[in-house]
Design a binder for these strands. Structure first.
Length: 556
RNA sequence: CGGGGUGUGGCGCAGAUGGCUAGCGCGCUUGGUUUGGGACCAAGAGGCCCUGGGUUCAAAUCCCAGCACCCCGACCA
């Protein structure tokens, strides 16, 4: 491909509202174009990468017996009512009406389609197990699309569904797919970890996430290098004691008179609640002022951790400083107080806290984070040290992106959609299901987050849009001729090459090459022609080599 | 859904106490000179100043409403 003819040019500056590295680099380099928040066009370069990713996914899914199909995106509403998800997923469903005023849903996922489909074709135990997958666009009305292509409203996903005669068979296959998933991420040049997933609609025991380590990740994960084990820090902390009943609803905030002592046990006793229901607030003195720290009543803030996070020495505020800030010892709360607050993850999922009202002997009941008070950031602030459940080593804290997840669905959808089979004894049995998702477009963004430097993207070889980037320097005709010869030669040898044949200045062309990030850069210039050589430079290395034209193939 | 910010050629921005023909940089077109890390000269093209309503002799600029985008939270198979 000649760059002069490629649709989608590089830009000197990234769009001002690009919020993440992947959004900046991918738009600046001409891989994607944003239509609206969370909805992107894939330009030729971007689509090339996406196709490579899809091919890797396809190969690995085929290798574990997956069969590719293509299901519709337009779903009649009734099948969503049948599983109850018309209601439970209502906020994120895109809806439309068809002829005769019929209601439709744009598919956010495909259990509702694939289960009835399987029911049509699966009758006997001989038809099982079977795994079906597709690579397709999903639609989810995210309340806040963000992070470039990492969280979109329309996005690409590989979703696979497996069907089994019993749990044992599902368990076996689930492990096989887990391994296949790790292969996919490794082949895409990423460092992936399996993590036990958060509780959700389908219970945490039966789901795993795949975390990819990158500095730009949205989640903080606890990782074990050795076992490739990961755990989301929020889950780790919440899990250490599963306190919050899942069905508790947020109750209205209430201020009550509370002539109690100032300690947590006295507080808990007075309100007749467990200590973990108390929102504990500690105020620290920093160089630049005061900082409130919220934590669950039964836990302790680790000053050491706080200091290592803030990178400065801190101390608890003195009595005088309390008065100065209008704080009442024992009755502090983040509600209605004018100092910044951060919080430990432990409070994130607890509802209806008891907390002080910043007045003597006055408390708030039913305080909820987000609704009644806001914290700047959630952090890990306790002494809690977590170890790998497999090898017992201490887990390290890293930022990560969730790039895939797998679930044991069990019989939820088979029941709703009447998916049964006849066993060897001729008895009717229910089918057990698993489902397995990888966001392929998110994966593309994740690769950029993980593989870039200050000049641009550094594509791992397996997913690079081209194998080589041929660049001419200088407007010399001889240079163009020689480059054209090399271009033809490479193509004859099945090398996917992008040929920057433009008459642009050296700086622009080299900067563009760095930005686009193709793994190998080849330069033809007056200098190289004199030496009958080509300059070869790998994107991830600083050094360039001059190699004889005939040897070029060895370097790609 | 709460709080904050921003909407001006394709991109990045200036103009805001109402007032002349709405500017600048990048990009684009034409011609010329250049070419090893974002070149230079000259001549051009390109604008419902987010939308709707209002105030006014006069609105990019003031007022009201709405929409979109971004950030921090809430939410998140």
């Amino acid at each position: 491909m000649k760059y002069s003819q490629l649709f989608g040019k590089t830009k000197l500056e990234a769009p001002a509202d690009a919020d993440s590295v992947n959004a900046k680099l991918l738009t600046q380099a001409g891989f994607v174009d944003r239509l609206i928040a969370g909805v992107y066009t894939f330009l030729p370069l971007g689509l090339r990468v996406l196709k490579k990713i899809n091919e890797i996914i396809r190969e690995e899914m085929n290798a574990v017996g997956g069969q590719e199909i293509a299901m519709p995106s337009l779903h009649p509403r009734e099948i969503w009512q049948q599983t109850g998800r018309d209601k439970t997923m209502d906020p994120i469903l895109y809806r439309t009406k068809g002829a005769g005023d019929r209601d439709f849903v744009f598919g956010p996922s495909h259990e509702e389609i694939v289960t009835p489909l399987a029911a049509k074709y699966v009758q006997s135990y001989k038809d099982l197990p079977v795994a079906l997958y597709q690579i397709q666009t999903k639609f989810r009305n995210e309340p806040r699309a963000k992070s470039g292509i990492l969280r979109g409203r329309e996005f690409g996903m590989k979703d696979m569904y497996s069907f089994h005669t019993d749990d044992a068979d599902l368990d076996k296959y689930y492990e096989v797919v887990k391994t296949a998933y790790l292969k996919v991420f490794t082949r895409c040049g990423l460092d992936a970890y399996v993590s036990e997933a958060s509780g959700g609609a389908f219970t945490d025991k039966y789901s795993h996430e795949f975390a990819v380590r990158t500095q730009a990740g949205e989640d903080t994960m606890l990782l074990c290098e050795k076992c490739k084990y990961a755990q989301n820090i929020e889950i780790a902390e919440a899990k250490f004691d599963d306190l919050q009943p899942a069905d508790e609803e947020e109750a209205p905030l209430k201020k009550v008179n509370a002539p109690r002592g100032i300690t947590i046990p006295e507080n808990a006793a007075f309100h007749k609640v467990p200590e973990w229901k108390i929102l504990k607030t500690v105020v620290y003195k920093l160089k630049g002022g005061f900082l409130g720290v919220c934590i669950r009543g039964d836990l302790k803030v680790s000053q050491k951790r706080l200091e290592s996070i803030l990178k400065e020495k801190v101390r608890v505020a003195t009595k005088e400083e309390f008065v100065e800030n209008g704080l009442i010892m024992g009755f502090i709360s983040p509600i209605g107080i004018n100092i910044p607050f951060i919080a430990d993850h432990s409070i994130k999922h607890i509802k209806n806290f008891v907390t002080g009202a910043n007045e003597l002997n006055e408390d708030y009941l039913n305080a909820n984070v987000g609704r009644d008070f806001v914290v700047r950031e959630f952090m890990h602030l306790t002494d809690l040290e977590l170890v790998c459940p497999k090898c017992g080593n201490k887990l390290s804290e890293e930022k990560a992106v969730e790039a895939g997840n797998i679930f044991k669905l069990g019989t939820k959808y088979s029941k709703d959609c009447n998916l049964y089979f006849t066993d060897k004894e001729g008895k009717k049995q229910i089918v057990t299901m698993g489902c397995y998702g990888i966001g392929n477009t998110r994966l593309l963004g994740t690769i950029v987050e993980a593989c870039h430097d200050e000049h641009g993207i550094i594509w791992p070889k397996a997913v690079a849009p081209f194998a080589a980037h041929l660049v001419t320097l200088g407007g010399d005709e001889k240079v163009q001729e020689e480059a054209q010869k090399l271009y033809d030669y490479l193509r004859e040898n099945d090398i996917d090459v992008l040929f920057d044949d433009r008459d642009e200045s050296t700086g622009k062309k080299l900067n563009d090459a760095d930005l686009i990030g193709i793994p190998v850069r080849l330069i033809i210039s007056k200098k190289t022609i004199e030496k009958k050589c080509v300059e070869v430079k790998r994107r991830d290395s600083k050094e360039a080599d001059l190699v004889p034209v005939n040897d070029v193939l060895k370097f790609i």
